[in-house]
Amino acid sequence: MATKAVQLLTVLTEIIEEEEEEGMDDEDHNNFLILGIAALSKTREVKRHRIEDYIQNTVPMYSPCVFKTFFRVSRSTFEMILENIATIDALKQRNPSAGRTQVPLEKDLLMTLWYVGSLETVRSISDRFDVSESTFYEHNRRMLNVFTDDLLHKFIQWPHTEIATVSDRFEQKKGFPDVVGAIDGTHIRIKSPTSEHAADYLNRKRYHSVVLQAVCREDMRFTDIYAGWPGRVHHARIFRNSPLFQKGQTLCGQCHLLGTTGRNDGCLLNNKAYWTSLYSSQYVY
C-alpha cells in the first residue's frame, strides 16, 4: 500500500513540474493537489476493529441480568432454544475437515438474538461477533427462517384441546369467567423508513414502529401472534384484519378473549360495563 502511494506521488509531481514549465496557473495547481490528496486517501486501507473471542471470553462473564439485557432471553431460555435448533437440517454443520472455519451454532444464535434485540447496524454486529458482513447476512437469514418455519409453529399453538383447562385456570387465578386468552398489542421500535410511507410508521408515542398483536394463556405462554402493521394503525383495525378475527368464533367457542378494549370485536367480551368493572383490577400477569 505504501509503494502505491509513493508511485502516485511521483506521477503527480512529474505532471505538476511539466505543467509548471508550460505555465500552469494557481487554480490548476490547487486542483492537482486536491486530486492527489483524494487519491492518497483512497489508497489507505481502513482497518476494521473486530472484537476477538467475544463469545469465548466476554459472554460467559455476563451476569444473568446483563445477559438478558443484551440478548433479551435468559440463559436457560437460550440453552433451550439452542437444544431445539441443534437437530434442524438447515443448521447442521458440514464436514469440518474441509473449507473455511465454520461459525458455531451458539454464535449463530447469539448473533441473531442481538440483531432482533437491538438497533445496531449490521457492520457493528459483524465486528462484535468477528465475522464478515456477508457471513452475518447469510447466517442471520438462515436462523430467522428457522425461527419462522420451525420454532414458531412448535411453541406458539392455540390450545384447541385445552380450552376448558385454560378457562378454569384463568378463573381460578383472577376470578374472570370463560377466558381463553388475554390479547393486546405492542409496538416494536424500528429505524425510520426512508420511503414516502415513513409517516405511517410513526406511532402515537412519536417513534417509528410496527405492531405486534399477541394472545397469551394463563401462564403467559403465547398462543397466537400477528405482526407487521405500521405503528400508526389502531389496534382495533389490526385485530379486525387478523386471521384471529376471521377464525375467532371457531377458536374461542363459548369463551372469549380478555383485551384492553370494550368493543364487540369477534370473540371479545361484549358487555362493556361488566368488562370494565372487572378488568380494571384483574390483569393476568
Rank of each mutant, 00 (worst) to 15 (best):
A2D: 07
A2N: 08
T3A: 04
K4E: 10
V6W: 04
Q7C: 06
Q7S: 11
Q7N: 13
T10D: 10
T10S: 09
L12M: 10
L12I: 12
T13G: 09
E17P: 00
G23Y: 11
H29V: 02
H29I: 01
N30Y: 06
N31D: 13
L35M: 13
G36W: 08
I37L: 13
L40D: 00
K42P: 00
R44S: 11
R50W: 02
R50A: 12
D53V: 03
Q56I: 06
V59K: 08
V59M: 05
V59G: 09
P60E: 04
P60Y: 08
Y62N: 05
S63V: 06
F67D: 06
S74H: 10
S76D: 13
S76Y: 02
T77F: 07
T77R: 02
E79C: 03
M80W: 10
L82Y: 11
I85N: 06
T87P: 01
L91T: 07
Q93N: 01
P96C: 01
P96A: 00
S97R: 14
S97T: 14
A98F: 14
A98M: 09
G99P: 07
Q102G: 00
Q102L: 09
L105W: 05
E106C: 04
K107I: 01
D108I: 04
L110V: 05
M111N: 00
M111G: 03
M111I: 04
T112Y: 02
L113G: 09
S118M: 05
L119W: 01
L119F: 07
E120R: 08
T121W: 02
T121C: 00
T121M: 03
T121E: 12
V122W: 02
R123L: 07
S124F: 01
V131G: 07
T135W: 00
F136A: 02
F136W: 02
N140I: 03
R141Y: 06
R141H: 15
R142S: 07
M143D: 01
F147Y: 13
F147C: 12
D150F: 09
L151F: 10
H153C: 03
Q157H: 05
R169Q: 15
E171T: 01
K174G: 05
G175D: 08
F176D: 00
D178C: 02
D178H: 11
G181H: 04
A182Y: 02
G185A: 13
T186V: 03
H187R: 10
S195Y: 07
S195C: 14
A198G: 03
A198H: 11
A199V: 09
R204M: 10
R204H: 15
Y207S: 08
V210K: 03
V211P: 06
Q213M: 15
A214N: 09
C216G: 11
R217N: 15
E218I: 05
D219A: 11
D219C: 10
F222D: 07
T223S: 15
D224A: 12
I225C: 14
P230K: 06
H234W: 02
R237D: 00
I238H: 05
R240N: 12
S242K: 06
L244S: 00
L244C: 03
F245R: 01
F245Y: 15
Q249L: 08
T250G: 06
T250C: 03
L251Y: 10
C255K: 14
L257H: 02
G259D: 03
T260F: 12
T260H: 12
G262Y: 04
N264V: 00
N264I: 01
L268M: 11
A273R: 13
A273F: 05
A273Q: 11
Y274M: 10
Q282H: 13
Y285I: 13
